[in-house]
Computed example of a mutant assay.
Amino acid sequence: MQRRTFLGGLAFSCSASAVLAQAPWPARPVRLVVPLPPGGAADGVARGIAQHLQGALNTPWVVENRPGASGTIGADLVAKAAPDGHTFLSHTSAITIQPHMGSAPYDVLRDFVPVAQTIAGSYVLVVPPSFPADNLRGWIATVRRAPGRYSYGSHGSGSGPHLAMELLKEAADLFIVHVPFRGAAPALQELLAGRLDMAFETTFAALPHIRTGRLKAIALGGPRTLEALPGVGTVAEVFTGFDTDGWQGVFAPAGTPPEIVRRVGEETGHALRAPALAQRIVELGFRPVGNTPEQFAAVVQADYKKWGRVVRERRILADQ
């Protein structure tokens, strides 16, 4: 298979680059497409960054929510947009999973250029407060004693929480029954009602319920502990190298001039270092990042490869 890299999206003919470089930029308001509904953490982070970019570039940045089809509708809109620096995408790590589920009408490694990773956040393994274990080793021992007895919920087949649990099941050699739901809200509702035994949830969704005692945190799926969850360890402390970190980042259509990509990436980093936005991100249970296009490309490529393997080897199929 021919090797592809995101950085290849930055390369195009010298004549095309020269023509675009001569045009004023931004020449009109810039769209930042968020392929998720308004009001969530991903939307809030995107709006904070857009506000900074608007001031830094002295041009309106309009956040456009285009939810649907697990984010593929909004992403496809950006993939097909003119690569002139007036359309960007703010998406989550789901963009590296969807192609392996057969649900992406675009090629993630060909049709986008990474601009900057904005945040990273771990999934957290949670159980009802009555579950007879308080840490990961105890959780493993409990589940292992009763193969097939316990069930876990997810946001749907192929969702991040689903693949995170499948990766943990593989690492610990466990049999747990998967119960997919259509979205995050119904899965969390069933868990809170005690009709599910466990789930990997986003820290954003789980934190309020952990703080009130309605859920118990067992372990974080990412390689780092979180300030928002003191005392909660990581799966990597038991299984070296285990990492289900999710993230959010800014992309541009392939062919966008590299000088524009670089400028937007730099200003995104400035936005994430602003104390107010950085503190808000930490409070939501995430980490502000703000890396370079090359660094973000490496993150996306690694996740694309990792989740592709999990989907193939665990024989994960999309919901019908």
Results as ranks from 00 to 15, higher is better:
Q2C: 15
Q2K: 15
R4H: 15
T5M: 03
F6H: 14
A11V: 15
F12W: 11
F12N: 02
S17I: 00
P24Q: 10
R28N: 08
P29Q: 11
V30H: 08
L32W: 02
P37Y: 08
P38I: 11
A42S: 08
D43S: 05
G44S: 12
A46D: 04
A46V: 04
R47P: 06
L53F: 01
L53K: 01
A56F: 03
P60S: 13
E64Y: 03
N65Y: 02
N65I: 05
T72V: 11
D76E: 13
A82L: 13
L89T: 00
T96N: 13
I97Q: 06
M101C: 12
M101G: 12
P105A: 06
A116R: 14
Q117E: 14
Q117L: 14
T118S: 08
T118L: 07
S122P: 04
Y123Q: 05
L125I: 05
V127A: 05
F131A: 11
F131T: 05
A133N: 02
L136W: 00
I140T: 09
R145M: 05
G148V: 12
R149K: 15
Y150F: 10
Y150H: 10
Y152M: 05
H155V: 13
P161M: 04
H162A: 04
M165A: 03
L167P: 00
K169N: 09
E170W: 10
E170D: 14
E170T: 15
L174K: 07
I176E: 03
V177M: 14
P180Y: 01
R182K: 13
A185R: 09
L192P: 09
L192W: 07
G194W: 04
L196F: 06
M198Y: 09
A199P: 02
T203C: 00
L207Q: 07
I210M: 09
L215K: 11
L215V: 13
L220F: 05
G221I: 07
R224D: 15
T225D: 14
A228R: 11
L229N: 03
L229M: 03
V238E: 13
T240W: 04
T244V: 10
G246V: 08
G246E: 00
A254E: 07
G255H: 01
G255Y: 00
P258W: 04
V264Y: 00
G265D: 09
T268N: 15
T268E: 12
A271G: 13
L272H: 07
R273A: 08
P275D: 12
L277W: 04
Q279G: 14
I281F: 02
G285M: 03
V289M: 05
P293Y: 07
E294A: 14
E294I: 08
V299L: 09
V310K: 00
V311R: 00
R314T: 00
I316P: 07
L317D: 12
L317N: 14
D319Q: 10
